[in-house]
Amino acid sequence: MQIPYNAVERPDTGLYNAKLGIWLFLASEVMLFGALFSSLVLLRVNATTWPHGWEILNVPLATVNTIVLISSSVTMVMSWASLLEKNFAKFRRYLGGTILFAFVFLVIKAFEYGAKFEHGLLPSTSNFFATYFTMTGLHGLHVIGGIIVNIYLWGPGSKMWTTDPARFINRIEVAGLYWHFVDLVWIFLFPILYLL
């Protein structure tokens, strides 16, 4: 017997395995980041002083980064749509774009961290910087994870397009769901850390 419902949907649930899997994973990610947001709120509510993000963080740079990450999300969903059109070359261009944007995001992030370190602003400086570095750092690790998966699917993993195209489209959709989630976390991190 082979494992069923890798490529096609199970009729009664309407889902293929990996789609249910990734949503379960994302649910656990919601709880992970949820716990961090909860901690942030608790610490801030109880703090005697807490700076506004815009006073000490670089808002223009973070705005650029927001735009970069949103763009990477669009190219991701476009790469999936290209596969539905059976246009493999276009798929690769878009997915390549996503990977590129992700790298740009990390480079900008690195500049931001570097500038903070230069001014002696470290996680131990205050609980504001502690939460800032921890949350953006964990988000950054998620970006790196996404880059690794996407590079695999862009390169060696894309061979599956010729052997099992239906399952490959599923894989891109699942990778996309993860990537959009990373984008979604940033959509909340950005205003909460930088703009308030």
Partner: peptide, 30 residues
């Protein structure tokens, strides 16, 4: 993002159920 890029606007019931459950626990934790 969730509605269109992640197609939540036309997703299966089971996914909705899972997310509702997660949101409830998230709210409790928050």
């Amino acid at each position: 993002v969730a509605g269109y890029f992640m197609h939540l606007i036309s997703e299966r019931k089971m996914i909705y159920a899972l997310l509702v459950l997660t949101v409830v626990f998230f709210v409790a934790l928050m």
